[in-house]
């Protein structure tokens, strides 16, 4: 680990402490004053008001000036901490996070991809955020990092994992039915282990793709079930060669789910919409023809 690399957590937590401390002090002060006045000047003790004072210029000046100074200090520390979240260390490892309804996929410069975000311990990581459909949110509570993943926009975050372990990764921007299951993890590995994983990850993608693994990684299974239970999209099980009622260009139509149908539905999801489902499936422009074949073979095998 770099000797003086401030992690995002170390940058944000002191700001939390300062703000909580100041807020608690104010809250305790206000509450204590209120309770004391209520008890001391309760009608049973104070049958009549003993003052008719209705303003005091000096008090007003004091309690306008003091909060002003306090909130400006809060603003300054809040901004200062935020800058640390934006200043990406120059040697950061670039990773691309691709969000779609409702899964994450992470790709590395050497071509390796993974549904989990593997990172080396102690080395800063810069995550480019890409959305294929609606707005998602990339949220790592353990590292105090969050950024929306907006379609058509180039957003990024950076963080560094100070120790090995598994950390939650949530989608923080509401994105539809399975928003709350759009969860992954950051897997922080010691640098040597990470290097080995990265090498292996890139070599497996070079061999013949595995349809089941692809369906998992590309997020298909978020909506299309393997056991026939209805999901957000039609179930994969028993789909091949079944009769499907679809809408094509607004006209109802019954077709057989053959190989051509499956391929068209993956490449151009919006062309044919199965009756009873929403036109929400995104196409994946990165899907190679080889991967498409593997996916279709996999779906054909689910009887």
């Amino acid at each position: 680990m770099n000797s003086r690399l401030i992690t995002t957590t170390e940058a944000v937590d002191p700001v939390f402490m300062f703000l909580f401390g100041a807020c608690l002090l104010l809250l305790v002060g206000i509450t204590a004053a209120m309770l004391f006045f209520i008890v001391r000047f309760h009608r049973s003790r104070a049958p009549r008001p003993t003052s008719t004072a209705d303003n005091n210029l000096w008090l007003e000046i004091v309690w306008t000036a003091l909060p002003t100074i306090l909130v400006l200090a809060m603003f300054y520390y809040g901004w200062y901490g935020y800058l640390a979240l934006r200043r990406v260390p120059p040697d950061a490892l670039p990773v691309t996070a691709t969000a779609r309804m409702w899964s994450w996929s992470f790709s590395y410069p050497n071509g390796a991809t993974s549904p989990k975000l593997f990172v080396p311990v102690g080395k800063p990581v810069r995550v480019e955020l890409v959305s294929l459909d609606v707005i998602h949110g990339f949220f790592l509570p353990a590292f105090r990092v969050k950024r929306d993943v907006v379609p058509g926009m180039k957003n990024h975050v950076w963080f560094v994992a100070p120790k090995a372990g598994s950390f939650d990764l949530f989608c923080s921007q509401y994105c539809g039915t399975a928003h709350s299951s759009m969860i992954s993890t950051v897997e922080a590995l010691p640098e040597a282990e990470f290097a080995a994983w990265l090498k292996q990850g890139s070599s497996t993608t070079a061999t013949r793709p595995d349809g089941r693994k692809l369906a998992q990684e590309k997020g298909c299974l978020g909506c299309h079930s393997l056991d026939g239970t209805p999901g957000v999209g039609p179930a994969f099980k028993g789909l091949y060669q079944s009769q499907v009622e679809v809408m094509r260009a607004g006209k109802p139509l019954t077709v057989t789910a053959d190989e051509a149908y499956l391929k068209e539905s993956i490449r151009q999801p919006e062309a044919l919409i199965v009756k009873g489902f929403q036109p929400i499936m995104p196409a994946d422009p990165d899907l190679t023809d080889e991967q498409l074949e593997a996916l279709v073979e996999f779906i054909k095998g689910l009887k």
Partner: peptide, 9 residues
């Protein structure tokens, strides 16, 4: 929530 650094979390 108003302070930039803490709002992010």
């Amino acid at each position: 929530l108003g302070a930039a650094a803490t709002d992010i979390h």
